[in-house]
């Protein structure tokens, strides 16, 4: 992982390798410039927290799958929202479930947005474009808290 990129990273939490690859492919096809950090399960996602405390730059946005091995997405979201450094980072839930309960819980835990992954890859590509345009282009990134 290169830390010297001029662009702020985004964090993709995704356990399924096919999904991960397809997402990364989609980003790539959109000529996505920001570095993408990847966590393959909840534990890996939580492992970023101490690094951010020690000065690593905060991601522009976290793309979080809900169904994760070890620590699931809801727990990750809750921990992020309780974390002094990570709590302002937008978390976009990107998942297969369109269950109302999942949606409601995600928002209750402080999700910034909730997106359902389309089966069609073209649609998925358009979705990643929108994410990139909004979160990495138009949106003002969250500042780092004054006192770590």
């Amino acid at each position: 992982m290169s830390n010297e990129s001029a662009f702020a990273p985004i964090l993709l939490v995704e356990d399924n390798p096919a999904d991960l690859e397809l997402t990364l492919l989609a980003f790539r096809r959109r000529r996505f410039a920001n570095p993408v950090l990847v966590a393959r399960d909840g534990e890996e996602a939580l492992a970023f927290l101490p690094r951010w405390e020690t000065g690593e730059p905060l991601p522009l946005v976290v793309l979080l799958d809900l169904k994760l091995p070890k620590v699931d997405g809801h727990e990750v979201l809750r921990t992020f929202r309780a974390h002094p450094a990570a709590r302002r980072v937008p978390v976009v839930v990107l998942t297969s479930s369109s269950e109302e309960g999942d949606v409601a819980l995600a928002y209750d835990l402080g999700a910034t947005s909730y997106l359902v992954k389309p089966v069609d890859f073209e649609q998925f590509t358009r979705l990643t474009a929108l994410i990139e345009a909004y979160w990495c282009g138009a949106n003002v990134p969250a500042p780092r808290p004054a006192v770590p």
Binding site: L22, K67, K117, F121, E122
Partner: peptide
């Protein structure tokens, strides 16, 4: 069951559709 339908059934489909497109 519904949950797994939502997640687990759709995930491989997405892989099929995604890679087929690619």
């Amino acid at each position: 069951f519904s949950y797994s339908l939502a997640h687990d059934l759709k995930t491989p489909l997405r892989a099929i559709a995604g890679y087929a497109t690619l």
